[in-house]
């Protein structure tokens, strides 16, 4: 596929390589080292790094500033942006701010509801939704215009991504929903963490039936469990997460001190199986506060070394 932006991630995907991304959560404070240290652990093993945007509605150092820190390290950030906290003025303004630092990737998200975080008494915004944010970035990039209709001097050049959760309900609209995001202009997708591989493969089959895998790059999301407790928590407490019983059982079936390794093994096996899934264009490894394990996961999955981005 021909590239439309200077994004390294886009180039790697367009060249037909399986791309690898990971993510870093910004700190609850202003020490930039919290970001640069995490990024340093994974930089040689991934093509681009997502920076989460006040994930789970807990107030943190902002995504944009964190992306700039990555940019200053010579790395490729993916700016996550939620519509929960910003109206269309702030969204467009932050997109331009990111573009001014030549941040070339954006992930358009709704954002977890604020009640999950440290500001449950706060307002939310939701001026536009994630689907409309995709449209907004594409409009700014491709038409060079603000939503209000005026021209943008030096429009943003961003590769536009979004999330997809194959496991949320109702399942029957999960493929139509992806089609809708593609119609809105999304170019790459990072999925929710995959533990139910059968269901994921069924979703991919439905996507292929409609040719959606040829219209956007679908990156499969994986998260290694650190412990059996984490597997149970994700199964029972995280909305929209599908952790099958046999996975929880497998984690619980090994002694505590070996559970972390078991979690990594499951993660690697998931990647290996999904490498064979037609339409999967890469992997998004979300090792939550466990960035140091990303290199091992990537290497054992046969995704290392990372390719050079070529025009």
């Amino acid at each position: 596929m021909k590239t439309k932006t200077p994004s390294k991630l886009e180039k790697i995907l367009a060249a037909g390589n399986l791309a690898v991304t990971s993510e870093c959560g910004p700190p609850r404070g202003s020490d930039p080292e919290a970001i640069t240290k995490k990024a340093g652990m994974i930089k040689d093993h991934v093509d681009a790094i997502n920076i989460t945007d006040n994930q789970t509605s807990v107030t943190r150092l902002c995504s944009l500033a964190s992306c700039i820190h990555l940019k200053l390290m010579g790395l490729e950030p993916i700016l996550q942006m939620v519509v929960r906290d910003r109206n269309r003025i702030a969204l467009q303004s932050d997109i331009l701010g990111a573009a001014s630092f030549d941040i070339h990737n954006i992930l358009c998200l709704s954002g977890d509801h604020q009640q999950f975080g440290d500001s449950s008494q706060g307002q939310n915004v939701f001026d536009i939704d994630s689907m409309q944010l995709i449209q907004t970035v594409r409009h700014m990039r491709d038409d060079g215009k603000f939503l209000g209709g005026d021209d943008i001097n030096r429009p943003p050049r961003m590769f536009v991504g979004a999330a997809a959760n194959p496991f949320a309900d109702p399942f029957e609209i999960r493929t139509p929903r992806l089609a809708k995001k593609i119609a809105a202009g999304v170019e790459f997708i990072q999925t929710q963490c995959i533990y139910n591989l059968d269901k994921f493969e069924l979703w991919m089959q439905q996507n292929r039936d409609r040719g959606l895998h040829e219209k956007a790059y679908i990156m499969a999301g994986v998260t290694p469990f650190k412990s059996a407790g984490m597997a149970k928590y994700m199964k029972n407490r995280v909305p929209g997460m599908d952790v099958p019983d046999d996975v929880v059982k497998r984690m619980a079936g090994v002694p505590k001190e070996k559970q972390a390794q078991e979690g990594i093994d499951i993660c690697v096996e998931t990647i290996q199986r999904l490498k064979e899934c037609d339409g999967v264009s890469g992997f998004h490894v979300m090792a939550i506060e466990w960035e140091e394990k990303v290199p091992e996961i990537v290497e054992r999955s046969g995704l290392y070394p990372r390719p050079e981005a070529v025009e």
Binding site: D129, M131, Q132, A163, A164, N165, A168, I173, P239
Partner: peptide
């Protein structure tokens, strides 16, 4: 253009 990913 919902639902979001949290619908369970």
């Amino acid at each position: 253009n919902g639902p979001c990913g949290g619908s369970t």
